[in-house]
Write a protein that binds this DNA or RNA. Sequence first.
DNA 1: CTCCTATTGATACTCAAACTATCGATAGTT
DNA 2: AACTATCGATAGTTTGAGTATCAATAGGAG
Lengths: 216, 216
Amino acid sequence: MRISELSERSGVSPASIKYYIREGLLPGGERTGYNSTEYDESHVGRLRLIRALIDTGGLTVAAARKVIGAIDDPGISLDHVLGIAQQAMPESAEPPSDIALDRVRAVMRERGWSTVAENPGITLAATALDDFAATGRTDLTALLSRYAAAIDLIAEADLDFVAARGGDRDQAAETVVVGIALGDVLLAGLRRIAQESLTHRRYRGGVVPSDRKEPS
Amino acid sequence: MRISELSERSGVSPASIKYYIREGLLPGGERTGYNSTEYDESHVGRLRLIRALIDTGGLTVAAARKVIGAIDDPGISLDHVLGIAQQAMPESAEPPSDIALDRVRAVMRERGWSTVAENPGITLAATALDDFAATGRTDLTALLSRYAAAIDLIAEADLDFVAARGGDRDQAAETVVVGIALGDVLLAGLRRIAQESLTHRRYRGGVVPSDRKEPS
DNA sequence: CTCCTATTGATACTCAAACTATCGATAGTT
DNA sequence: AACTATCGATAGTTTGAGTATCAATAGGAG
């Protein structure tokens, strides 16, 4: 198919398709002449992946290029794909404090988790703890433990999901990448729902009155 | 204190402080003359909150203004603050498909969750499901159920956390806001840790060999 | 065979977000 | 009296993510 058809099928403008090819997110089509190039189904699928990562997953184009590169490189093993995908997710600039790091390590011990030292989740979690602390909140220990317990269930579900889909390495790699990026979003969405629902259940008509003001 | 001291105490440049005041994220200090304005502790705390929301929570300046406005408006009840904070989080442009929405509603029924129709988590979760589907993954039902079960635990922990801190409305409102934004990040971090840890445990030396390629 | 439309890669332009720098006026400090 | 810091206003910068324009040209409609 030509670029105009690819554009229609994927919902991405021709100009953006060219841009993604320039940036190395999308492989170019097969040139069949000076002014004609053939694209196929794989390009449609890849474009959908790109948009999911960028639009919903919140990745930058540069980050998306990285993880897509990892999917495509057959020399990178599945758990390295996991690592690369994890590292590509939005990260913090400032390194976290040692206190926060210790707290994260404590909860890891509590749950029997062990990772390589540079797991980006560790700094990410520690940075969040620092920010909680900087805005005056303390006593996070209980919260952190309960979060970790719930996350254990989630990670088990994640692994089962990847395992269940089996398929070849490329498919599995894509599932890992999509699962990390979109899983975060899915979980955030469910958390909003549950928070509102449980709030209503707990405080129905009670502690929190005032239903006159509209939330904009 | 003057702006230079506020800058040092908070780690935010004077120019950025002025910018935040212009944008309505930070209340201006008390003017004490043509070229002197007094800032106090509350400005330091507010700046820390702003940086946490923007840098770690990933909010835009506009979104941060919204939630901070909700904290400051005493006419807005606590659970409306929750709603506003939820709505300020990064959202998707395209509305999700009805199929995805039905799936989300099904899991809500399963868990006994109920919310107002416009809960932003619903569209967020449904959008993520659509993207999963668009990139070829199906059979999400099992994953979704397990996620929801774990999220129930998390949301319970969230509410306990807010309740435990008690304090006045303003404090509680700030806790709600910080908790939503930073909680997502904290959970994402823990998930990365658990994913890596469980992957190693499951596939130790097995399914996934190849440790020659470095993840850059 | 000839005009028309689509396509190509390259380059340049646009747009928004989030700062950052400059400026003239001025006021307290030495 | 000179110096330095501050004020608000306005203008400029930087980065990310596309869009738009362009000359060359090839394949199809008539």
